[in-house]
Design a protein around this nucleic acid. Structure first.
Lengths: 233, 233
DNA sequence: ACAATAGTGTCTATTAGACACTATGGG
DNA sequence: CCCATAGTGTCTAATAGACACTATTGT
């Protein structure tokens, strides 16, 4: 007997919380700043409020699939790998009912956001919150807190390893890598310190950068990882 | 209009996953080893299988309350502070239906387990899994993975700070503190390295230990924490 | 005196960070 | 030649780990 049969009715019919996913999709903008993708709510009484893309989790769906569906339907973005942050479960966090949200985060190159129906908002380095237009202060629900957790996750991921979310391509110079890390971490880095910290995780390709002024830089790629993958906080 | 009114029916009546909590309640045994509290399942076809205490989350309940209820009802333990690990959401993880589980962990002094109806099982230091009796190998559901994540959480918490889960009392000697840390981490520590690492987070009380052989040891207490609290991984 | 535990001085190896130097391309 | 960027030698400060020594109690 499987859970699609009548036995499951007794379990599923008992009143239980609904479960949603919300995704803080982060990126690095052209001018080297961290930003988060928002969308404007259209529900009654809420028009004009900003929130993270999210959706309810359907009965047959994993969280990952629900998160990808939210990105596709709400902001028109496809093909990411959202990571779980944590569950936000305050009983009064959603006026529409008893809804818990599994917060997710992802960090993707900005060119994957082309054609999005969402809006990129810079994340303030000090507050770790999105900079909202004019008089507005704060996202809907508990989404400010989700963004803060997401930014912390991204910075933790970029403190140790070279570009773990692959914001840049397979081959890169150390300066290109450093620019990405400075954007995510929101602070500068000494080039020699940065180099000596990262080279242990890099392999030289043998190639050199071309076309720019100055001494051509060596190209590197990430060392193929041996063990653990990146994890949510 | 609140979520108790008719509007919520349309939301809650739509088929959606059930949500459960499972708690890996860890402790340090008399002989200085890490252990996890299990209980024997009584459901049909499952009698004799071991699992973590868990329960379904009710519609009005926070995860914390549900986790505490599971501990009270399933193993007769009260008053802990479970921390979220992550959501386990594989669609086939539970034969009874579509159930996601929010895994929790807590680490408490062994005297709080007096009168429990559960069973303490030592956690193997190498595999990070509970040592099961005779021929059994593996907990029900995905609970082996939860225990592994819980042990990792506990070890991370005890790597930096002095006894963050308060397994020992307010005042203690450095040797007492070291014994607790060695039990959680599952490895010995040099006393001078340990001391110099931990004193920065400790205040001297001025008191001395009494009654034992050898030079009396100074008593310390934890420095009142300024900022962040302990967090799940 | 001796056993046992507490606590410290000091050496080494490693590392982050900073400064300043050398290296190598384009114009 | 000059400029700009790449890459390295080296110094300093901080830290973990280890060893060995001194300190202080009970018996």
């Amino acid at each position: 007997m499987t859970w699609r049969d009548s036995l499951s009715r007794t379990l599923a019919d008992y009143p239980h919380p609904s479960i949603a996913v919300d995704v803080a999709l982060l990126t690095v903008t052209e001018d080297g700043r961290l930003a988060v993708l928002l969308h404007e709510r259209e529900e009654q009484y809420e028009t004009g409020r900003w929130s993270l893309p999210g959706t309810f989790v359907q009965v047959d769906e994993t969280l990952r699939v629900a998160a990808l569906r939210a990105l596709r339907k709400k902001v028109g973005v496809t093909g990411q790998e959202p990571q779980q942050l944590r569950v936000f479960d305050a009983v009064d966090r959603d006026d529409r009912g008893r809804v818990m949200s599994v917060a997710h985060v992802d960090l993707v190159p900005s060119d994957r956001l082309e054609g999005t129906t969402g809006t990129l908002r810079r994340v303030d380095s000090a507050t770790r919150r999105p900079v909202l237009p004019d008089g507005q202060n704060g996202l809907a629900f508990d989404h400010d807190e989700i963004v803060e957790t997401a930014v912390k996750w991204a910075r933790d991921a970029y403190r140790e390893r070279p570009d773990p979310r692959r914001l840049i391509g397979e081959e890169f110079t150390l300066l290109e890598l450093q620019r990405v890390h400075e954007a995510v971490l929101g602070r500068p880095w000494q080039k020699d310190t940065f180099r000596r910290h990262m080279v242990q995780y890099l392999d030289e390709t043998g190639g050199l950068s071309r076309g720019a002024v100055g001494k051509p830089a060596r190209l590197f790629r990430r060392t193929s990882p041996r063990g653990e993958h990146s994890r949510p906080i």
